[in-house]
């Protein structure tokens, strides 16, 4: 059983479109959408939820107004600006450190487990998908990502699936690290722009740090062939193989609008290129 994560550094380069295409193309796998902040893979895979779980992490402070003696000690000690002048807790600023609860002379503050999201196991036309939704303003620590990755791995083992395919989050922070650790390969999907190159470099550094091989796909490559070559050259110089290139094609948007993956869309050229990219990726892993 092998695991692949699709990353980009910069958002909007085509991770989810690529993951959707692999979902359609690859046999015998489990999908995981690890972009728990703004999950989109379900728009292509139309999952039917089979299991729903609450996700709790960290704590939030709560002031019992009847017990509160309005001394303001909590406001004095809070370093996150989470206690308002009127001595209420601003939930979106509270980081759950618990200091206010410990200093309150009236024991009027309790720390409560924070329900910050949910995660799901679903069935799609391409197999099982594990996904999640993180609540608004919550800390994206990577813990929810780790949770759904663990579940996906368990499902893959029990059902003898060959692949776990992970739609990764943007950026390079903790959620990205949680989606990338222990995988067999990273598929880096980027676009031919300054931002794309800049942020791809940071993903490559992360791959080196975690000792995971990285393969590159430049999406919409013909928007700027010169920058495409620059990115491919940078990658080759840094031990990253070029798995393929996808041209800009309205067929992609059309497929997304219809809730379909590229492999179910109208462009034969794109389909052929995705097949080549997958062959390259598979070859590199084995």
């Amino acid at each position: 059983m092998k695991q692949i994560v699709v990353l980009s550094g910069k958002g909007g380069t085509g991770k989810t479109v690529m993951t959707g295409a692999l979902a359609a193309l690859v046999d015998n796998k489990v999908m995981v959408d690890c972009d728990v902040d703004a999950a989109d893979l379900h728009l292509l895979l139309t999952p039917k939820v089979v299991e729903r779980h609450e996700f709790k992490s960290g704590k939030k402070a709560r002031i019992d107004e009847r017990a509160c003696v309005r001394c303001g000690r909590c406001l004095e000690v809070c370093r996150f600006g989470a206690v308002t002048k009127k001595l209420f807790i601003d939930m979106s600023s509270c980081e759950g450190c618990g200091l206010c609860a410990r200093v309150c002379p009236a024991a009027a503050i309790t720390m409560e487990e924070n329900l910050c999201g949910e995660w799901f196991v679903s069935e799609t036309r391409f197999g099982t998908m594990v996904h999640a939704r993180l609540g608004i303003g919550e800390e994206n620590s990577g813990k929810l990502v780790a949770q759904i990755r663990q579940k996906a791995k368990e499902i893959a083992k029990e059902a003898f699936r060959d692949w776990v395919i992970i739609d990764g989050p943007p950026g390079i922070g903790c959620p990205v690290m949680a989606s990338l650790s222990g995988v067999d390969a990273v598929l880096l999907v980027t676009e031919p722009s300054c931002s794309g190159l800049h942020d791809a470099g940071r993903v490559i550094d992360l791959g080196k740090h975690f000792k995971v091989p990285v393969q590159l796909v430049v999406n919409k490559w013909d928007i700027n062939p010169a920058v495409t070559e620059q990115i491919e050259k940078y990658c080759t110089e840094n031990g990253v193989a070029v798995a393929g290139r996808l041209p800009f094609d309205r067929a992609v948007v059309n497929a997304v609008i219809q809730g379909r993956t590229i492999m179910e869309g109208e462009s034969l050229g794109l389909k052929a290129e995705i097949i080549k990219i997958w062959a390259h990726l598979k070859g590199a892993i084995s």
Partner: peptide, 13 residues
């Protein structure tokens, strides 16, 4: 920043 998690809330507060 993109998204809806806590850095975004800090930025637009």
């Amino acid at each position: 920043p993109p998204g809806t998690s806590c850095p975004v809330v800090a930025a637009i507060r």
